[in-house]
């Protein structure tokens, strides 16, 4: 039981950090909808893998990477907003997920785990994938920190400054795709969006500094994932739903703190 719980807490810690970093990038790029699109692409890949008797995680990774790799270049060439294309692909992947479930005839527990998240089905292999993706994200963030910052601020300006902006942008999308996918099993495709977007949005309520916003985002995401796991274990609720509740509560607290700080500042000025 203790080993099982260690695995769950590790998944919450690593998954929270992964989603926090991905959320920071996606919100800074003004592409929060891309997070939900990637999550549903991964879910569709996983569902079809189960339907075909294949391992779900590799298939989910392939599906999310395919969407992430195609989305940037296609949006650029079609002169279409990435958010618009994300919306089209989101509905397509959600439709494919339900088609896969429909073709199976009956919803199996593995499929339900992809939709809602389940810690019971988490394997050490999933923890290894989380470690690998997070390590890759941290290494890339450290090496290319100034290029990533430039692309997040303004991709066109970054290109004009001599940065390989498209390569960095597509690389970020692909990494975000991976980060979302490896969390699919624990959080579930339908709930993952909140773990990606809420912590980044909450962090922006508290700070106007890049490093601080990045730190707060990851901290909020880890707190959401670990808090959600704790709530899930204590109350017997589904993990994904518990994480959504905690991350939404953290956002509400951060937004309240911002309003309170503004009121105090205005009061002091009077």
């Amino acid at each position: 039981m203790i080993v099982l719980e260690i695995k769950w807490w590790l998944a919450a810690l690593l998954g929270g950090a992964c989603c926090g970093l991905a959320g920071f990038y996606l919100v800074a790029l003004n592409l929060p909808f891309l997070g939900i699109c990637l999550a549903h692409a991964a879910m569709a890949g996983g569902v079809f893998a189960i339907a075909l008797g294949l391992p779900p995680l590799p298939c989910a990774v392939v599906a999310a990477l395919l969407v992430a790799a195609v989305l940037g270049p296609v949006a650029d060439r079609a002169r279409m907003a990435v958010n618009t294309l994300s919306g089209i692909l989101f509905s397509l992947t959600l439709g494919l997920s339900f088609l896969g479930i429909g073709l199976m005839g009956t919803a199996r527990s593995e499929v339900l785990a992809l939709l809602w998240g389940s810690l019971l089905l988490l394997r050490w292999w999933d923890i290894g994938a989380l470690v690998a993706v997070l390590a890759a994200g941290l290494v890339l963030a450290a090496i290319f920190s100034k290029e990533i910052k430039a692309v997040l601020f303004d991709r066109r300006l970054a290109w004009m400054n001599g940065v390989p902006a498209s390569a960095i942008f597509y690389g970020l999308l692909i990494w975000c795709g991976l980060a979302v996918t490896v969390n699919l099993q624990a959080v579930g495709g339908l709930m993952l969006y909140s773990l990606v977007v809420n912590p980044a949005a909450a962090a922006r309520q508290l700070t106007e500094r890049y490093d601080a916003a990045l730190g707060w985002t990851v901290a909020f995401a880890v707190a959401s994932a670990c808090g959600g796991l704790g709530l899930s274990l204590a109350a017997g609720w589904p993990t994904g739903a518990s994480i959504v509740i905690i991350s939404s509560a953290l956002f509400a607290v951060a937004a309240g703190a911002r309003l309170l700080r503004r009121e105090i500042r205005i009061g002091a000025q009077r």
């Binding site: 919100v27 800074a28 003004n30 090496i143 290319f144 100034k146 290029e147 910052k149 430039a150 997040l152 601020f153 303004d154 991709r155 066109r156 300006l157 970054a158 400054n161 001599g162 940065v163 390989p164 949005a201 922006r204 700070t207 106007e208 500094r209 890049y210 916003a213």
Partner: peptide, 29 residues
């Protein structure tokens, strides 16, 4: 583009924005 994303965009200071001009000169990575 950043001007359209002021609310949720990258929170940089004035000096950090100027430093972005050095990104290409400093070398990749």
């Amino acid at each position: 583009a950043a001007a359209d994303n002021a609310e949720h965009g990258v929170p940089l200071s004035a000096l950090e924005v100027v430093e972005l001009g050095r990104t290409g000169r400093a070398g990749l990575g």
